[in-house]
Simulated assay, not measured.
Amino acid sequence: MNILHLDSAITADASVSRQLTADILARLTAANPDATVTYRDLSTGVPAIDTAWFKAVRVGTDDPTPQQQAQIDTSNALLAEVQAADTLVIGLPVYNFFLPSQLKTWLDQIARAGVSFRYTAEGPEGLLTGKRAFVAYTAAGTPMGSDLDHASGYLRHMLGFLGITDVTFVAADGLAMDREAGMARAQQALEQIAA
């Protein structure tokens, strides 16, 4: 088993999503002691895509400048980590009803036509198939699946768009109102994970 472990919370050791991704990872590696784990902390920054990125990475060039080559190399490295993994463990703390910007930027970097998805006569087709994802959803006041939650549905959609349709959420929500109950719900979901 090759696991890609992604954290995105900006709250360091106080992060509940980091605690939950660690718990998920512990369950997976206990059941699969030979598993390899690649870790990336997105909170340290992921370069945003822009016009220069588009010209370098999406349009491409036969003679990239050093800056363009750096953009290509970064995007390729992020995508290669996903391609090499069969299991993703993703921390999804909800900030202002949505994903952390670093997690959104990571998705922007890896969503590449012809590489991670392609357009067909029947519509887009994800190319990152054969993978599963476990998502640690945490929110102080945004119940997962509610009208306020614009994060979980978007992440599920984007993963599916890229071909990752086996997605399991472990949610600790409503933490500001009743932390104990939110953590209990997450623990119950953790116990359902089949490693």
Rank of each mutant, 00 (worst) to 15 (best):
S8L: 07
A9H: 05
T11Y: 15
S15T: 05
R18M: 07
L20V: 01
L20N: 03
I24A: 02
I24M: 03
A31R: 02
N32Q: 10
N32K: 00
A35Y: 02
T36K: 15
V37I: 05
D41H: 04
L42R: 02
S43Y: 10
S43W: 06
S43L: 08
T44R: 15
V46Q: 08
D50P: 04
D50F: 13
D50G: 09
W53R: 05
G60P: 02
T61F: 12
D62I: 10
T65E: 04
A70V: 03
Q71F: 13
I72E: 01
D73A: 14
D73K: 06
D73I: 04
T74K: 02
S75E: 00
N76R: 09
A85P: 11
D86G: 09
T87Q: 08
T87A: 12
N96E: 10
F97T: 05
F98L: 12
F98P: 05
F98C: 13
S101M: 11
Q102S: 02
L103G: 00
L103Q: 00
T105Q: 15
I110H: 09
A113M: 14
G114N: 11
G114P: 03
R118N: 04
Y119M: 13
Y119H: 13
A121P: 01
E125P: 01
L127C: 07
L128S: 00
G130S: 06
V135C: 03
A139G: 07
A139C: 07
P143I: 09
G145C: 09
A151E: 04
A151W: 05
S152R: 11
Y154W: 14
Y154G: 02
M158V: 12
L159Y: 04
F161T: 07
G163H: 10
I164L: 13
T165I: 12
V167W: 12
T168H: 14
T168Q: 08
F169Q: 05
V170G: 06
D178V: 02
R179Y: 15
A181R: 08
G182F: 07
A186S: 03
Q187H: 12
Q187L: 09
Q188C: 07
A189V: 08
A189S: 13
L190G: 03
L190A: 01
E191K: 06
Q192F: 00
I193M: 09
I193Q: 11
A194I: 07
A195M: 07
